[in-house]
Amino acid sequence: MIQDHLFFTGINILLAWSVYIILLSGSLSFANGAFMAIGAYSAGVLSVKFAWPMALALAAAALATGVLGALIATPALRTRGVYLILLTTGVTFCVQVLLENFDYIGGVGGLGGMSGATVWHVYGAVVLVGVLLWWLSRSHLQRMLDAVREDEQVAAALGINTVYLKVVCFALGAALAALAGGLYSHYMSFIRPENFGVLVSVYVVLYVVFGGVNNLWGALLGAVVLTLLPELIRGLASWRPLVFGLLIVILLLVCPEGLLPWRSATLKSRVNDD
């Protein structure tokens, strides 16, 4: 039981980071539940029907979903703001319906037989992705992404290839969501399309907004708190969703930029500790 909570917390951290990576370039994606589903199913098919080892299946699923993400992003990122939110939500709906109507992977009945993922695998991935994001957060690339997020037009007018950066972020976010999905399916051993409804996409965005969008710790904290909070207020029985929702509303009113709103400068005028 504890192990399950730990596992889902880890998965949700990865998913929150997958949204965070896309948000780095200023795009808000509600398609990450769909990318998770694609990762879960494609890794599952590779290991169940083709007997690939799990690591290889996960890597292939992440890579393929990343490419798919780039293909979706190239036209989708012509839109922005609320239109991009609607468009990515649409992707989530489409993917769910596609999965339900595809008999090869079990249709509505689901796909079973995956195994091998443990809590250790998930937290290994969390540490690895965390280190990469931390490395990024101190880099010139982070600075360029911040500029794109602040004012895309100005960034482009001053020589930054904004479209390229946005597509790369979208692809990487999709790949990470797929990795989380693959780990999820190999832990659960049985998945169905309804596991990846639009609410998953919404929740994952909520983790990031709740924790703070300006640093990688916000997404992490948001995922941890919002995964464990419903368990902590389990005693409230059927009032639980109401209390949970109210807590989110109150927190966003009190700190609209999330729990950890700060952004640290990527460059100081004096060289201190590094």
Binding site: M144, D146, A147, E150, R263
Partner: peptide
């Protein structure tokens, strides 16, 4: 880029 430092605005 208002939320970035003066130095970052140029560096970026």
């Amino acid at each position: 880029f208002r939320r970035m430092s003066v130095l970052e605005n140029v560096a970026v």
